[in-house]
Amino acid sequence: MAPLEYLRPSDEGAAIALAEADGRACLLAGGTDVVGLLKDGVLAPSRLVDINALPIAGVEIRDGGLSIGALTRLSDVADHPAVRGRFPALAHAVLAAASPQLRNMATVGGSLLQRTRCGYFRDPVTPCNKRAPGTGCSAIDGEHRLHAILGGSDRCIAVHPSDPAVALLALDAVVRTRGSRKERAIPVDDLYLLPGSTPERETLLEHGELIVAVELPATSFAARSCYLKVRERASFEFALVSAAVALDVRGGVIRTARVALGGVAPRPWRARAAEAVLRGSRMTEATIAAAASAAVRDARPREQNAFKVELVRRVLTRVLATAGAGG
């Protein structure tokens, strides 16, 4: 790990200025991802701007929705009664992430921006277009059991690892950001970019742009939401496949549906085709099966990760049945 400058400003403006002023600066929140990447030599910033002294932690009820400060620890998000009661998918997803120790440190902002767990990305020695653009993707013809079946490109098939992000996507969450010149409200759905030919660009955020909060709007579907994650051990493990669904069902008919997938794509994946099948339908086995199949219609599995196609179908079948039965 190369020497770097460590700064801990206490107001947002200063933090943004310090980050923007140095093209190789990196923001540090809970550090649970950044520190590992530093130690592995994947990141080599010249400056670390520690944002933990900024007053952007805590959950507030606002306009019937919630505003979650970017520095709110995942454990505090999962504990909050309004999250548990009104946005159950988020509470489930947060509790399914990492381990209690990590959740005590990890923040909501950091969870959205954590980097992929692709072993080639995290090994500075191996070719990787995301880490070192133009060097090639090692995973495509290498070990890709855990890689993307949706949304990948011939440059990158790494998956986004965040559980909370999948739930936030299904709940129409919006990210509030601040740069030196502007403040923005970016729907989580717009935040992430697909790898295409530039896998090194992962989000819309500009260098130094600070996430200050994640807002959960009051919606008709948040209350009937849930999250399901399949993994190889019971805790402390990223998703093989996960899904968040949120439904507004009235008179037996699905008015609105949100279906988001994790562990299958380079970003939290919105399964719009599945949503379209659900919208206006009754929650029957046939509807569920059709929606589950629609979600993977465009899947492009490879040799080692083909099992994820079937696993997505089964996860969706389960989670839709669960959400459909609830409320």
Binding site: G119, Y120, T126, G142, E143, E232, F238
Partner: peptide, 18 residues
Amino acid sequence: LGRVVSPNLSGYAVPTHA
């Protein structure tokens, strides 16, 4: 590559308490 992928305790999963 003949090289271990994800040489860490996230890539090599031992049982947790759970």
